[in-house]
Design a protein around this nucleic acid. Structure first.
Lengths: 299, 299
DNA sequence: GCCTTCTGTATTGCATAGTGATACGGCTGC
DNA sequence: GCAGCCGTATCACTATGCAATACAGAAGGC
């Protein structure tokens, strides 16, 4: 975990963060800031960024691709330029090149651009090569057979956790099926599970830097309260969240550790409060999931 | 569908295709060439590639990222350089930059590089913004409730179809859960379903350009026979494959059409020949899936 | 033990490759 | 009809990315 702190990059400085404008179908089923979590702060400072090894045109290209992070429909060239913080000419060249390679496509109606299917090839590479995903997948499938609820694997990425493997239950919303979706560490069951295995100062640092806007009226946003929850999690060996990200959702998170005992991800079981009392949910699902999390961990 | 044929790019000319060396766990459960399908031929010719709008450094960067397509473990800089067809210095600069942005990470043991988690952000963008994925997800979930087998949505990409939504059954292998996985059009149920809605010369062209190596002893590889299967598919309105990609697998594929009637993807139902006779499989699952495919189509 | 061969990282002068202002024709909507 | 977008095309300038080369540390052979 400490290995990569040298190469850091705060991409948020260069990618503008416009307010998300809710207007599409799933916005009514999910609080509109569900996609809010941002990629991990990597804080490569100006010094590294101006180093002779840093390829600025590539940086711009990735900013162009990232313009879609805040989009909810196809983007025009000017919109891409604006979102990416580059001028129209640069956007034009980058889009042209990315399009030639399949990383950007045209929208179905011919107006505007959308992410290209070739991106999914890299998704596969990531999932295939990640040792955690490799190890977890069969175990998660076993677990899913026993507990008939949603089961996920999420990966720790600083202020957020990113869903990498998703096994569905019958009740689903759009976002709860998508790989790549992420939620903040500070208020998710996976986040608490991971934070509970991190040193205190690291936890403080993460909470301090987190954008702690609530997802539901019940989202815990005050640091003392979060710390309390994390302490509970630490004592129990798992995290239990009610109504934190989604109203009516109950979720349990279990830390997954690497060989040196550092948390690298979490597995989750999530159900509906309409079907479960918290007690039943815990009694029924926790033991199996705990066992699964231990089996995946290498510590 | 015909809109984007101007921007073409044959990335295979620049990315070497080494033989895949099987040695990891899932290679024993799957034929080793299951990942063989290559990203769609986009054949941007030298003319476009040397145009003043084409950013060569970006091309090299993406080739570097694509080096992982043929990897089954972390890659060293030299390996990346070799796979990507660039010199070590270029690989160094690209890796440095991509790493700073989170698109490449170090392997857990500190030796070599692996794809970075930030790639999953773009996965999410792709899935969120693709109209087909949006429309299909809830319908696929409905369908999954009825037929208790594996249900997928795949997207047409020239010589291959790419899995974008995957709803599991109890019996699973590693690859059958991963988004981004792709299989050739010429021998998959989704591929046949799509080809059955394409004009004849287009089908011929695709078959001619396909690398038609068999996946199993039963894979249909001869063009006349494939054409026959496609004709059947066309007559039935769905494709039925036995042992084509995976031994013991039976799969049905259903074309999904866009507003102008062109096929843009397919949905699948897949089961095990150990549990189903083909007749039962057809009788039990086809009607529901056909209806689902129609509901997703916009034609 | 030493020697070879890998790793990943760092430096530097040169010219090419990317830059960005500016222009154009084709839509859409007022 | 004009205004304002869209995506595309051109071109002179110089900043930017290039590739050869050098380096320290780890791994592996013998």
């Amino acid at each position: 975990m400490h290995s990569d702190t040298a190469a850091l990059y705060d991409y948020r400085k260069v990618v503008n963060r416009p307010l998300s404008t809710a207007k599409h179908e799933w916005d009514v089923t999910l609080p509109r800031n569900t996609t809010r979590a941002e990629p991990g702060l990597r804080g490569l400072t100006e010094s590294d960024r101006s180093g002779p090894l840093f390829v600025r045109s590539l940086e711009k290209a990735m900013q162009v691709l990232s313009a879609f992070h805040h989009a909810d429909s196809p983007l025009s060239l000017s919109e891409i330029a604006e979102q990416a913080g580059v001028d129209r000419s640069t956007a034009q060249r980058m889009v042209h090149t990315l399009r030639a390679m399949g990383y950007i496509g045209r929208a179905a109606d011919g107006h505007g651009f959308v992410p290209g299917i070739r991106l999914l090839d890299h998704t596969l590479d990531y999932l295939r090569l990640d040792p955690l995903v490799r190890r977890a997948t069969p175990i998660l499938q076993e677990l899913r057979k026993e507990v008939r609820e949603r089961v996920d694997l999420s990966l720790f990425d600083d202020l957020r956790v990113v869903y990498a493997v998703r096994l569905q239950s019958k009740r689903q919303t759009f976002y709860t099926t998508l790989v790549g979706h992420s939620v903040p560490s500070f208020c998710s069951s996976g986040g608490w599970a991971i934070l509970s295995r991190l040193p205190n100062d690291r936890v403080r640092d993460i909470l301090d830097r987190s954008d702690r806007r609530p997802f539901t009226p019940h989202t815990v946003t005050e640091i003392p309260e979060i710390l309390e929850k994390i302490a509970e999690t630490s004592a129990n060996g798992y995290a239990l969240t009610l109504n934190q990200i989604l109203l009516g959702e109950i979720a349990a998170g279990f830390p997954v550790l690497d060989a040196s005992g550092d948390p690298v991800g979490a597995i989750h079981v999530a159900g509906s409060l309409a079907e479960w009392t918290p007690e039943d949910f815990v009694n029924r699902n926790i033991p199996l999931a705990l066992e699964a999390a231990r089996a995946i961990s290498q510590y």
